[in-house]
Amino acid sequence: MTTTASGPPVQAPARRRTRRRTTDRGFNRAFRWIAVGSGVLMLAVLAAVALFLLVQAWPALTASEDDLAASVPRYPADTSLLAYVGPLVFGTLLAAALALALATPVAMGIALFISHYAPPKLAQVLGYLVDLLAAVPSVIYGLWGIFVLGPAVLPVWEWLGQVLGWFPLFAGTVSPTSRVLATVSVVLAVMILPIITAVSREVFLQTPKLHEEAALALGATRWEVVRTAVLPFGRSGVISAAMLGLGRALGETMAVLMILSPGFLYSFKILTSAQHQTIAAYIAADFPEASGLAVNTLVATGLVLFVITLAVNMGARAIVARRKEFSGAN
């Protein structure tokens, strides 16, 4: 013990001096290789996902426009695959962006509430409650969205359509069935609240206590402490949290599939039905009845979704990683 107390990198010299039997060394090496192998396997799985999607999508990527139009049910004549996927990508991004716009402020509020406002003893339990929202299966969100939320928000949508109809998002006829992108966005926002909250909460809790106390000593109110010490410190964390939420919203399937009345247009009218469709819901809706080239086309759109979510998540993680290097001590 006394010898190891001096230097910080203890493990290497300590191990060198241990009594080694050959079997131990064999096990040691085997165990290490198994562990390394698992790590490599993780990378292999991700590569495999991309590879197999690409293999299955290949026939659709290389097929002629006429072949696609003949064998894919919705495929209009004289359209490239890119032009076909375009509205789906647009719908996916629009739904996710709206959900993000709704969820981020609320999630920040909840995170601040749990980290700085709620009584400390209650804070953990309240945190669990928010986490429970993440545990609810998406099919239940779908049922709830149709039977409870849809009817409940319809008057709000009608009011928005009347009062703010000049605004592009709220233009068009308000659908009487409430199966519109706006309703979907609200459900998606509820679904991504927990993940944004969880990450923001962690970041806010890491705010150096000295900064907060310094602000308090200058006579700052609670909100001023938050504004001057907590928020600047947590900004990049909140951004990456929001991007993680965005990634989740992009890929959500069941709630969209069950609630949205789909259409394949570039349209901003979120209160009008049959304007948008997301990639994930499109796949789930058409996959059961698809055969032949139609399956390849569906996998190709899945590949597009995979690339988009991968890009968003990589962006988010890159921001988090950079932040870790900055803050150093943590």
Partner: peptide, 25 residues
């Protein structure tokens, strides 16, 4: 064909979906 040809109209998934949509609107 199996897919509705006109764009921009209300739609829903499956028989129960269209019935539900019709009942609510």
């Amino acid at each position: 064909e199996g897919v509705w040809p006109i764009k921009g109209q209300e739609s829903a998934q499956g028989t129960s979906g269209v019935i539900g949509a019709a009942q609510s609107g």
